Simulated assay, not measured.
Amino acid sequence: MVRILGALFSGFLIGLLARWLYPGSVHLGVVATILLGVGGSLLAELVARRQGSSQQVGCLASVLGAMALILIGRLLG
């Protein structure tokens, strides 16, 4: 239970940072911000694994992954 709450809290913080650093306004609710942060972390982890890294990705990589998801979302629609 503590891991789930930690993942939701860190996802929220990563999503907030990504929204704040992304140029332009990003209108998302709390749940969408959490999902953005968790998705950014998963994307960064996937890219790191494809590059052959066995270490966990950091917060910066997760924020960049979340910003990439914002960009992809804007390009798609």
Score class of each variant (00 low, 15 high):
9 F>E: 05
13 L>H: 03
4 I>L: 14
20 W>M: 03
23 P>S: 05
62 S>K: 10
64 L>F: 02
50 R>H: 15
2 V>P: 01
68 A>P: 05
15 G>K: 03
53 S>W: 14
9 F>P: 06
21 L>D: 02
57 V>W: 10
7 A>S: 12
14 I>M: 01
72 I>G: 09
51 Q>W: 13
72 I>R: 09
2 V>G: 01
69 L>M: 08
17 L>G: 09
46 L>D: 15
50 R>E: 15
58 G>Q: 08
19 R>Y: 03
4 I>N: 13
60 L>K: 08
72 I>Y: 07
16 L>K: 11
32 A>T: 13
20 W>K: 06
75 L>G: 10
68 A>C: 11
74 R>D: 07
58 G>H: 09
59 C>Q: 13
25 S>Y: 01
15 G>V: 01
54 S>T: 14
51 Q>V: 14
9 F>C: 04
26 V>L: 03
15 G>R: 02
58 G>L: 11
24 G>T: 00
39 G>V: 10
8 L>W: 11
11 G>P: 02
29 G>P: 06
64 L>R: 00
24 G>W: 00
66 A>Q: 07
2 V>L: 05
36 L>G: 10
53 S>C: 13
1 M>C: 06
3 R>Q: 08
67 M>H: 05
35 L>H: 12
59 C>H: 15
44 A>C: 11
74 R>F: 05
16 L>W: 04
43 L>D: 11
7 A>Y: 11
74 R>S: 05
65 G>K: 01
25 S>T: 04
28 L>G: 03
48 A>E: 15
66 A>F: 04
58 G>P: 11
21 L>W: 01
52 G>T: 07
12 F>E: 03
45 E>G: 14
6 G>D: 06
46 L>P: 15
31 V>M: 12
18 A>Y: 05
13 L>W: 00
19 R>A: 03
65 G>L: 04
59 C>D: 13
